[in-house]
Amino acid sequence: MEKTNPQHVVDVDIIRKKHIRLSAVALIILALIILSGMVTEYDHIEGLIAIPAALEWLFANMFFSSSTLSRLPTVLNLLWQTVLISVVSTTTAAFFAVIFAITGSRLTAINGPLMYISKLVASISRNVPVVAWALILVISFGTNAATGFLALFFTTFGFLVRAFIETIDEASSDTVEALKATGATYPQVIAKAVIPESMPQMFSWVLFMIETNIRSATLVGLLTGTGIGYLFDLYYKQLDYEMVSLITLAIVIAVLLIEWVSNWIRREIL
């Protein structure tokens, strides 16, 4: 009789265990979906059946006419303001995030307490949602562009500090130690070793946050009464679905263009 290969038996056993784990995970996910439907009283079957009718309504009401298209300059003007607020808030947050990341990274930390304070400040800033920041700040600053800027700034700052800390931690410690061995000061180590090695990845994170903030700025505009979000909210409440369609299309195209530019820049610098 042909002998069974022990290695083959082991491989089959590993594959069987993987299949069992995948099946168990799939059953757990299915159970969670059913349980969530029961708790929220949402019928998944009815939701799926309603999709064709929803698409039919969408195509019947969201196409814009030439008269609506004549208001495109207004849409583009407010969209441009939204893009600028996103870029300015992101770049400003990136400047401060670099400082906090340098003091918060284990590789470049000045001392332990300052490192944990930097991480704590960034964590608080990051874990408050941008919508919550907008609602908090609108009480103090009112409905203006400054409120939207600050809401995006605080959220972006917290995220970038964490991303920059991880980037700096991944930098070569050998270069840092070599510079220290030659008698280089702390600022010289940062300027000659840490920043040059981490800058490409940091720049990539900044570009990513600019893309994200353009989407977030639209939502913030709904709450602060500024930018393209304000215009969207205005026409949505008037049930002017043609203008809503035009604004949505303009936002999508703007985000896609900026994403394309960001990807091109990333390919050039990374």
Rank of each mutant, 00 (worst) to 15 (best):
V176P: 07
M199R: 05
T226N: 13
Y230V: 02
N213T: 05
L231I: 09
V194L: 06
G183S: 10
V220D: 00
T182L: 14
L223R: 05
I228N: 00
V176M: 11
S172Q: 14
P187G: 11
A178Q: 14
N213F: 06
E197K: 06
G229L: 01
V206G: 03
G227F: 01
R215K: 10
P200T: 08
T218G: 01
S173E: 11
T185W: 07
L223A: 06
G229T: 03
D233W: 05
S172G: 11
S198A: 07
W205S: 09
A191D: 07
D174A: 15
V189C: 14
E211S: 13
K192Y: 04
E170F: 10
V189F: 11
I214Y: 02
E170P: 04
A178H: 15
A193G: 06
S198F: 09
D174G: 15
A181M: 11
S173P: 09
V176C: 09
V176F: 07
G227Q: 02
L222V: 00
E177Y: 10
G221F: 00
T175E: 07
R215F: 03
F232D: 00
L219H: 01
T182A: 15
S204D: 11
I210Q: 01
Y230F: 08
G229F: 00
I210K: 03
V176E: 09
L231D: 02
G225I: 05
D174K: 13
E197I: 09
G229N: 01
W205H: 14
F203M: 11
A191C: 08
S172C: 14
I195P: 03
T226R: 11
T182F: 14
E177A: 08
L179I: 10
V206L: 07
L222M: 02
G221A: 01
M202F: 07
L207I: 05
Y186M: 15
E211L: 12
V194F: 06
E211H: 09
I190A: 13
V189Y: 06
V176W: 04
I214L: 10
L234G: 03
A171T: 13
L231F: 07
L222E: 00
Q188Y: 09
E197Q: 15
G227S: 05
V206W: 03
A181I: 15
S172Y: 14
T212D: 11
A181Q: 15
W205I: 12
L179S: 12
Y186Q: 13
A193I: 08
S204W: 07
M209N: 05
Y186S: 14
K192D: 02
V206H: 04
A191H: 06
E177F: 12
M199I: 07
D174P: 11
V176K: 06
P187K: 15
G227T: 02
L207A: 04
P187C: 15
G229A: 04
G227I: 03
E197W: 12
G221T: 01
E197R: 12
S216F: 00
